[in-house]
């Protein structure tokens, strides 16, 4: 595999060239080329298959419990209604869990980006004692799956009395060696001449980092922040392990624990799932370009 596929920064990401088909789209006959038409039909069928689970969940969430439990028809006999949403929002803990998710994910994102950017700059620009082995250790740690750490981490949280606290949820999630790596690659490409002027003026290292390098790095910082935020928002296993107090749970954890409590209330189940999905759908609509570009140029962001 070529490393460059992964780490090529924004700098090299080519401005999207207009794709062939946009040029030749409407000169009629070529668009109707049989192979292209076939591709289109196939894609429409596949896209439908991908969208249907969403629509089906949404349709169910708009039914009454009685008609949701009666049959698999799309249109309920007693009509669509918002009842499931209002009962989920008024009776359940969903607003509280959404707040917990928003709070912990935001703090995780702020800390992760801050410490990762500082470290990446240090590794990129300052030749300090132990730099090389330290960086090697951090990169080597990429091989450690977070799942391996759950038992000793929980034990550690017990001794630190951080079980069932926000900090217990947050602290283990702020270490992101992949982000240090990605940001270092980016800083490596920033021409050092840009810093020289500031240095001649007597600016300190930190001052240069803060007022010269960071402003240049806005796009990559935005991409990293979005990915860290989404990962934290969606993370299930760790918050699930470290919280048992319902009032501290994040949205994914809370939903999992009430799933059984709702029992056979299908409409409410789907309404709460839709509510949990909504913030990320909005995030995607707003940041589609950054997300797509982030994944295609660095290959990070999840899995």
């Amino acid at each position: 595999m070529s490393t460059s596929t992964l780490t090529r920064g924004d700098r090299q990401a080519p401005a999207r060239k207009p794709s062939r088909l946009r040029e030749s789209l409407f000169p009629g006959e070529r668009m109707l080329a049989p192979s292209r038409l076939l591709a289109l039909v196939l894609l429409i069928v596949l896209a439908l298959a991908w969208i249907v689970p969403f629509l089906w969940a949404f349709a169910t969430s708009l039914k009454s419990e009685a008609s949701a439990a009666a049959s698999a028809s799309w249109i309920p006999e007693d009509g669509f209604r918002w009842d499931a949403y209002s009962s989920v929002l008024s009776e359940g803990n969903i607003p509280l869990w959404a707040w917990n998710s928003l709070f912990t994910s935001t703090v995780i994102t702020l800390i992760t980006v801050a410490i990762s950017a500082l470290a990446a700059y240090g590794f990129s620009r300052i030749d300090f004692q132990g730099r090389r082995w330290l960086f090697f250790v951090i990169i080597a740690s990429l091989v450690i799956p977070p799942q391996v750490l759950i038992v000793p981490l929980f034990y550690q949280m017990l001794t630190l009395h951080l079980v069932d606290t926000y900090w217990g949820i947050i602290l283990p999630q702020v270490i992101a060696p992949a982000m240090v790596f990605i940001l270092k690659k980016f800083f490596d490409q920033v021409p050092i001449e840009l810093e020289d002027a500031a240095r001649i003026d007597g600016a300190s290292r930190f001052r240069i980092f803060w007022s010269v390098v960071l402003p240049l790095s806005r796009p990559i910082l935005a991409a990293v922040s979005i990915f860290v935020f989404i990962a934290a928002w969606n993370n299930f296993l760790w918050p699930f392990i470290v919280t048992s107090d319902s009032s501290l749970m994040t949205l994914p954890v809370g939903l999992q624990t009430v799933k059984s409590a709702y029992g056979l209330q299908y409409a409410q189940n789907m309404a709460s799932a839709m509510l949990a999905a909504l913030p990320l759908i909005i995030v995607f609509l707003f940041f589609q370009r950054q997300i797509v570009k982030g994944i295609s140029t660095t290959g990070f962001g999840g899995q």
């Binding site: 990169i139 990429l142 977070p146 283990p172 999630q173 860290v228 990070f300 999840g302 899995q303």
Partner: peptide, 14 residues
């Protein structure tokens, strides 16, 4: 997707 964070290919990184 669950896990906090993972990684672009470790190999290249090392």
């Amino acid at each position: 997707t669950t896990t906090a964070m993972t990684t672009p290919a470790e190999g290249g990184a090392v």
